[in-house]
Nucleic acid binder design. Structure first.
Lengths: 113, 113
DNA sequence: TTGACATATTCCTATATGGGAATATATTTA
DNA sequence: TAAATATATTCCCATATAGGAATATGTCAA
């Protein structure tokens, strides 16, 4: 079996750095495809293809205005990722505490030694 | 160019559902490979291979005890994902507000009409 | 040392890319 | 209708899987 399709869910869709860049730009509001092409310095077909993936997994919405297509982020689609990563929040708090404690103990030992 | 390697960063690593399952289990503490094999009902080589990817991107740490290898989650590695998704938090708050407002307006309209 | 146990790696294959190039589709304007 | 503009899709290819099967490596027990 090959890797899951990028369109299988939001996790797979945002694994691609360019798509995260696109979403970062759309976080500031609606943008046309050409806006993204210019700002991200990517080829137009590339941007369109990435937007297609983001659309398929529900991470962006589109609106047509004349010849232009205006895309906006659908943040609700990112929420599951946020919720999942959040379940590890307590862990990194604890683990950092332990790292800090070890560092302090070490400093104490060396000042005493 | 093909898709980025699963070992290129945490985003790519956790795009695979099995790897998220593994991390979910490791969130509760250290587990041996066989523990994971039994709990997740996956083939042992499959678990080892997923753990290898997680290790390469720094999402888990290993400790040997006799013949067994005990893995634990390194939550720090998940933090960048949490931070990135967090930048969209204000958006889904706003967007939900708008959805709610529209729903209320619609309800009002229909009760008046 | 030999066998058993625990885990890791290699080999194989079907599949899904992401980018580049070319082309198709949709809409406005002359 | 034809030309121009904006965006989307298709075709091609090198590359990276994920899982299954087989095998290798490492460690303990007799």
């Amino acid at each position: 079996m090959a890797r899951a399709a990028t369109t299988s869910d939001a996790f797979n869709a945002v694994a691609e750095p360019r798509r995260r860049e696109i979403l970062d730009h759309l976080a500031s509001g609606e943008h046309s495809v050409n806006d993204l092409v210019i700002r991200l310095r990517l080829e137009q077909p590339s941007v369109s293809k990435h937007l297609r993936v983001l659309r398929d997994v529900g991470l962006v919405r589109v609106r047509r205005h004349g010849r232009q297509m205006f895309y906006q982020a659908n943040a609700e689609g990112i929420r599951p990722l946020h919720e999942w990563t959040k379940t590890f929040e307590r862990l990194w708090a604890h683990q950092l505490t332990r790292v800090k404690e070890r560092a302090e103990q070490k400093a104490k030992d060396s000042s005493e030694g």
